[in-house]
Design a protein around this nucleic acid. Structure first.
Length: 484
RNA sequence: GGCCCGUUCGUCUAGCGGUUUAGGACACCGCCCUCUCAAGGCGGAGAUCACGGGUUCGAAUCCCGUACGGGCUACCA
């Protein structure tokens, strides 16, 4: 039987890193096993579900490179893929359960239930529904329903069920005594299914073989297993993933910085880097390998190497990893990726990149080596597009030193007589310390500040080449006025 | 209250009874390279494997408790 897995986000929010990791594991597992990856939108909460969220989730999935075989926008023969459109399936499942007696109507009011819960949660034990309505004669119940009495449908936990074993790939067999299982609600008063019912019906109808999802569902799994059994459908395998926490060990939230996948795109992360980082946050290839490309993940992912314990999201490691992926980009790719960021900063245009392609290409290796995120680039290359502003600190440190004005004059003179490629520029600049008696560092830093406005910049000789002779000489002249 | 899960360097993890003086990665520190910043190379510090009992010739690894953290216990998902 071929593998079928699903990712079933609820569009009550955006796709966040926790959900993304779940999606990644499902996707990788499907790809590794030649199975199908299904995307289903669990939009049964009409209050909080929105179209925008759904669209953003799909966008984030695509951005990460997670392609699905069945689901919104791609179709499939197990649709529809929105729970709000699957009511016939839930109705049919409930009908099956009514027929085989595994469900019963409950007429208790919310107030009664709340009171019972309050009372039951005391030293000693069971706190679930007390099964009051279970003893109502079917004929009597039918009569009340016919008269329009509000009611829900509950699962009738079999009296002889015994221990329910959850076959979990991450934690091993986990046992739950059936006697602590509640006769939980399957269908609400308004006729809509609850999560634990809808999920099972859909997983059964979509022939899901492996349910890979968050840890928060583990305790609900025995309930869901009983629904599979009541429906006489095969119980899938499970794998429950531990949560991702914020740096303080608490639930990951906006307080900790970005949680939405889309935010990482906006900060200049490469999707491959986020995918790699998230994949390794709770799964390992061999304990040694840290760079796992999407291709490697598709070939090597396995459920048995998922770790049991929760993980703290480490933004610094993600940044490092992003740098690794950025450095692996070809110059061509780098320029392509860099363009939107330069456009956003008002420094470059697509037309300019096309017109001076080689110039941008030669910039790439200098910049890519120093970037961890694309949103840092604009400041690094701004001096190539705009006149630099030399701040007081840089002026003091690099320009207002004994002999610097003279050194800049000499530099200007020698540069005006050289060809403008990095090697020639270097030779020219290295002659300046000799003729002026200043240390090379002093000279170079003065030139750096003159042309970039900062004591920290891209490599000097290459920077001058990129700037061009004319602008270089202009800036040195301007800096002379500020020197000594 | 009940049921369930988790606990190895600051962080992510390797480890699945002896090959371990507990390995790798990020971060940190030092050195090298060097025109600054990076990148890279080399090295360092950092974990009494939550704690306490067992089992065993031998335990981070198996068992039982305890502590701490988390989840579920909704007509939320």
């Amino acid at each position: 039987m071929s593998v079928r897995v699903r990712f079933a986000p609820s569009p009550t929010g955006t796709l966040h890193v926790g959900g993304a990791r779940t999606a990644i594991y499902n996707w990788a597992f499907a790809r590794r096993n030649g199975g199908a990856f299904i995307l289903r939108i669990d939009d049964t909460d009409p209050e909080r579900s929105t179209q925008e969220n759904t669209e953003q989730i799909l966008r984030s999935m695509r951005w990460l490179g997670l392609d699905w075989d069945e689901g919104p926008e791609v179709g499939g023969d197990h649709g529809p893929y929105f729970q709000t459109q699957r009511s016939v399936n839930y109705d049919r499942a409930l009908a099956t359960m009514k027929e085989n007696g595994s469900t019963y109507p409950c007429f208790c009011t919310a107030e009664q239930l709340a009171a019972k819960r309050e009372q039951a949660r005391t030293p000693g034990g069971f706190s679930g529904y007390d099964r009051t309505c279970r003893s109502i004669e079917p004929a009597v119940a039918a009569e009340r329903i016919a008269q329009g009495a509000p009611h829900v449908w509950r699962l009738k936990v079999p009296d002889d069920r015994g221990v329910i074993v959850v076959d979990d790939a991450v934690r091993g067999d986990t046992e739950f005594p059936a006697e602590v299982m509640d006769d939980f609600v399957l269908v609400r008063t308004d006729g809509t299914p609850t999560y634990n019912f809808a999920t099972v019906v859909d997983d059964a109808d979509m022939e899901i073989t492996h349910v890979i999802r968050g840890d928060d569902h583990l305790a609900n799994t025995p309930r869901q297993i009983m629904v599979f059994e009541a429906l006489d459908r095969p119980v899938p395998h499970f794998a429950h993933l531990s949560m991702i926490w914020g740096p303080d060990g608490k639930k990951l939230s906006k307080r900790h910085g970005a949680t939405a996948v889309e935010a990482y795109d906006e900060m200049g992360y490469l999707p491959e880097a986020l995918l790699n980082y998230l994949a390794l946050l709770g799964w390992s290839l061999d304990g040694e390998t840290t760079i796992v490309t999407p291709e490697a993940l598709k070939e090597n992912f396995s459920l048995d190497r998922i770790s049991k314990n929760p993980a703290i999201f480490d933004a610094e490691k993600l940044e490092w990893m992003n740098g690794v992926y950025i450095r692996e980009l070809s110059d061509e790719q780098f320029v392509e990726r860099m363009l939107p960021w330069l456009e956003r900063a008002g420094l470059a245009t697509k037309a300019d990149v096309e017109a001076r392609h080689d110039w941008y290409l030669s910039m790439a290796p200098l910049v890519s080596e120093r970037t961890k995120r694309f949103d840092e680039i604009a400041e690094m290359v701004r001096f190539l597009f705009e006149e630099p502003e030399i701040d007081d600190r840089a002026r003091e440190k690099a320009l207002q030193k004994e002999g610097v004005a003279n050194a800049l004059a000499v530099t200007s003179e020698t540069l005006s007589a050289t060809a403008f490629d990095a090697a020639a520029i270097e030779a020219a600049l290295r002659s300046v310390p000799e003729t002026t008696g200043l240390k090379p560092k002093i000279v170079f830093q003065a030139v750096r500040v003159a042309i970039t406005g900062s004591t920290v910049s891209l490599p000097l000789f290459e920077s001058l080449e990129l700037l061009g002779k004319e602008r270089t000489l202009d800036r040195i002249a301007a800096a002379q006025a500020l020197a000594d």
